[in-house]
Amino acid sequence: MANPLLKIEDLHAAVQGKEILRGIDLAVGAGEVHAIMGPNGSGKSTLAGVLAGRDSYEVTAGRVTYAGQDLLEMAPEDRASAGVFLAFQYPVEIPGVGNLYFLRAALNAQRRQRGEEELDAADFLQLAKKRMKLLEMDDTLTRRAVNEGFSGGEKKRNEIFQMAMLEPKLAILDETDSGLDIDALKVVAQGVNALRDAQRAMLVITHYQRLLNYIVPDYVHVLAAGRIVKSGGKELALELEEKGYGWLEPEAAAV
């Protein structure tokens, strides 16, 4: 890959002095879907958080280049405007802030930042209706406060609804499948697939091969103890499903 959209080199990150990411190298090209699997606590969400700009992590070494820019230098909102989107493993409830209001504020903040024209109320609602249909979202949900009192599955669906509204270039989905029932999983996966195109890259974090039946990845990586210990094609996910992580590096199995 000559100029990947995202290039992670020897990335180390720590939380409260404890090193969680211990040298990650990964290149993701436009149009590619990479799945990241790995045991609990191996650092998957940490990696996602570092990429989105969560400031509770301290990057101790390495670099991340996104669309030719030093990603780690950018504020979270600037990363968003540049096209980075994180679907949270645990979406946050924000009582008192309306879902649609928030999305419109976010979308227009991004557009302003990119020097594009803001969407007016009518255009915004039209777009929202289209995306709600794609994700089979009930409008009683979108009219409520952000994630407030949403069920686990509703929160995950709302993350993908937001992604569909914001149309990022790099989407990082952190265990979007957990909490979804079988039907919801299909709907959400369809939503994600509808957004797949040659310009957009995705980093799909999951524990289950099942999701990858719907969102078929180009590459699968195994993250263990803060390192990528194995990479392969989509067959790797099947192999992991069958054998678990024990057959990989002893270090990985020990986590």
Binding site: E77, F85, V92, V97, F102, A105, A109, Q113
Partner: peptide, 17 residues
């Protein structure tokens, strides 16, 4: 962080909250 990760500026996110 959630609001900022969607593109809402730090100051505006604080005020919204």
């Amino acid at each position: 962080f959630y609001l900022r990760s969607r593109g809402v500026g730090a100051e505006m996110a604080r005020h919204l909250l």
